[in-house]
Amino acid sequence: MKHNIVIIGAGPSGIEAAHCLAVSGEHVTVFEKMEDPLENLRNKAFLFPDFTSASELTETFRTKLQHPYITYRGGTSITDMERMDGRWVLTTDRGEKIDTDDVILATGYRPFDASRKEELGYGIYNGVVTSLDMEKMLLRGRVVNSIGDLPSRVAFLQCVGSRDSKVGNNYCSKVCCITAAKQAVEVKKLLPEAEVFIFYMDLRMWGQGFEEIYRSSQQDYGIRYIRGRISEAAGTFDGKVQIKAEDTLTGLPMKMSTDLLVLMVGMEPSEGTRMLAGRCGICGEYGFARSENRHLYDNVTSREGLYLCGSCKRPMCLEDVISDARSAAMELLKSR
């Protein structure tokens, strides 16, 4: 079997790159380890900074994937790839060998496993959830505490698994600051009576419209920001979570009990990213895939016929991912 171009990963970046190539007349095969594409996006409710419904984007990407020049192979993992006689040979989990000219890695990220920060009690106390769990609750339009009641207090904690040398991730995951502000606002919209706190180290509202959400979250929604990390969480007999923190602006230790503690988990390279970047010898820092040059050649790699797009390179937000996918497609077409 011969393929012109193979894209590994059917998230926003993989699909966008495939679509760009397809409309330019290239035949593309997209491999995805899950049956359905867009695993991460499907579980999102609203997108920052404009609160667009994530389902709108999901539908658009699904339509794009239907292009006649795109072959979608869901439920198939690539377990190995190597360069042979000027072509890439990919092995699937079914033992199939696929021979192709070019490969685009769009293997993306995985959310940080919050149970690795055991002191925060995720997986131990039901009142401790991650930003992903919160997003699912928001998607269902119902935010509840550990015993199924409406929470009267919700605390968000930033930088869980990011900027934390203790878990081996010194980098910033870029999207959590604004996501917490966004989720806090959504919680307040659903539960106007609830108190909402955000614990942070410093807030990085870098994107267009981010600062406005941050400001409005305080002025219009009464969300309170506390500078300080939470050192430990413990369950209480009534299903709440007691947190210990230090308010570093007042310099005082504090204790607070809350119905929900939401851990803003960062982005780590996915298993696929780690493994394939490793196999191709383009493993960068923290297991992300390494491009040739951050400024000029951010979609090409040191290996011929191997391109990168999206969050397999570093934490990225959706806007960045989509532009990056287009530029990867362009880079590939240029080489033809």
């Binding site: 002191e119 131990i124 106390y125 430990e232 413990a234």
Partner: peptide
Amino acid sequence: SHLTPGITE
């Protein structure tokens, strides 16, 4: 052990 509540629980 307070930082490893899995143990105390």
